[in-house]
Design a protein around this nucleic acid. Structure first.
Lengths: 204, 204, 204, 204
DNA sequence: TATGAATGAGCCTTCATTCAT
DNA sequence: AATGAATGAAGGCTCATTCAT
């Protein structure tokens, strides 16, 4: 067999591409119609494949939603890791996390809708999410806060975990507001504002 | 003939009671199974009525969800109005709003689940919600913030509307976290902490 | 007890009146919506009584339809009997029957709709109808025809029963056409035309 | 490779066949139980397919009834057109129309029941029917009659449209009678008798 | 007699999933 | 690997009928 040229993608690559294609279609459809309202057939049509084909790449409809979540989180975590590399200042770490968070969602409105709305449908799913990745995220924030406290930058009397939830909640709300707002503005731009407010508080 | 006692409830009262009963059952079932997974028959069974009876009091399944929202909001708004009566200090106003917000949800876990999870299923519903009542709420917060700025209590360079979203986001996140957490703690207790943090920020 | 005056109708009369009222409402509703589409509640509302009241006067929904039929037929037969009294000429008898037939239906469009359309819904009902009253009617026509044949007025080679069906079919078609036509014309006026054409066809 | 034989039906053919199969089953079931009493599941069972399959070929239950009507009318019109080809004599044209009319219904009792009984359920449907195809049919009859009048074969004083309705009514009645009668006789045989009687009646 | 709230059986329709081709 | 026709379980909703008042 001759060497595989770059022109013809390998079989594994072709398969991964189609998987990607379907996942992308699912994001679009779930965002447009909502998870329960969107039919598997809608996703297949959007992807330009037959309904049955979806089941060659995904277990079932739920698996589509879960895969969207996992795939996106994997990518986001990678990006966050790179963004934090070599950054020692805890406040700057918070700022970078916030930028990745809002930057990613702000880049892809459909994805943002799926994350802010569709993924929160079932307590079952949310429990699953919140017991792992969300906890990791909150922990990362919490650690930066604790560090800042240790470094004497932040007040010590505030619980780091409560403060972490608060920062996360604020960022999350920005994302949800951006989706629902009719105005078109850059979501990412709010990352710094939120972190600033978080750091300084409202007091003069 | 002596005055008719209140013993026997009027027909209108009985009807309102049954409506209330079904709504309560819907909250329980939607919280337990999720809106799409819960069947109208489940709600009816929970309420101890026949399935058809639900349709005497509500248009359809969607109407149940919408009614839960509207009924709860009406009550909450009433309570908030009473809580703010005669309170001039803007920071105290924020504190009272936060207490009502978390106090109500913390009192009724099922209701909190419906509000934090089930009501956010569809962009359609969220748009409806966010375009009216949520805006009112954010406005009320924003006004208190602006007042505090005018009074020289808060920094002037922060946008009141952004700050309002941030405070709301933080409270909302507390509620969601409370639902999803396995630990049992008093949600209402976090209202003051959140407001304190919001007001002071993290800076020393 | 004082003599019952004519002012206050007897109890039996009042009951008969309400029965009549409901039956009339049923005719209107069945004509407007069709038997299966019309709900018992519609009939009750039209009659100005509660839904349950219908069941004090009629067995069930089917009974409404059957009662309309029977009541109307009873009246029609009475009228026909009076119209034929002392009329010896068989052709004139046919003419009178046709006039009663189209005259009655032409007087009450809703009733005509129920008769021409709604009553023919189920083979079950039609079989019941056709095996008794329709047969009587066809027989009455057939007898007049046979008489006319005996009297040498009509051709003998035509089967009286076939000819009877044909005349009935023609009258029935006039009624159906009248209902469905947008034009408003006097149905009764066609009785003579149909009979003329028929008689001419049967003439020796 | 040898020529593909017709053994394996094309996909389009298979689809058309299944549609036909379901339509046939609907005719049987509607005739046996009546349109409103027959369930879609009954039709599916009769056709040997799953209930959901019906909805791959038809919009909904109503569409089944409408499709029976349209399909049958299309076929009947084709046959009638062929039967009238090259026939100039107006009386013979009437005779041929009558033969097609009763011949078709007499060949398929279930179909006849659907046409004579079930399709007449709703004024809505009847209006739709009577405003188009029935009018065409009456027109075709009426034209033959008018021609016969012009040719001096029929009396001129009778309105062709009234006479057409009469002939149609007579044929229609024969069909209805045939369905409801317990006796088994050849419906088609009555076509000539009816036309003879009609023609005799119209003769100058 | 009359009411009308309550019942619950019944049915149309949807759609995730399968599987023969 | 891909297709898409077929499946059939499931569920929202209707409405004839009942019955406590």
């Amino acid at each position: 067999m001759p060497t595989v040229t770059a022109r013809r993608p390998s079989r594994a690559q072709a398969s991964a591409d189609k998987r990607e294609l379907i996942l992308r279609a699912a994001i679009t459809q779930f965002a447009r119609r909502g998870f329960f309202q969107a039919q598997v057939a809608d996703v297949a049509r959007e992807a330009g494949v037959a309904a049955g084909t979806v089941y060659l790449y995904f277990e079932n409809k739920d698996d589509l939603l879960i895969s969207i979540f996992e795939q996106t989180m994997r990518d986001a975590i990678d990006e966050a890791r790179r963004a934090l590399e070599g950054v020692a200042d805890p406040v700057e770490r918070l700022r970078r996390l916030a930028r990745v968070h809002l930057g990613r969602l702000g880049q892809d409105r459909d994805l943002a809708v799926v994350f802010q709305v569709e993924l929160r449908q079932s307590t079952k799913f949310m429990e699953r999410f919140s017991s792992t990745l969300l906890q990791d995220y909150l922990q990362a924030i919490g650690e930066a806060i604790a560090e800042a406290q240790t470094a004497g930058l932040f007040r010590r009397e505030v619980s780091p975990s409560l403060a972490a939830k608060m920062l996360y909640g604020a960022l999350d709300e920005m994302a949800t507001n951006w989706i629902l707002s009719r105005r078109r503005y850059r979501l990412a731009a709010q990352a710094d504002e939120v972190v600033d407010l978080f750091v300084h508080g409202m007091k003069r």
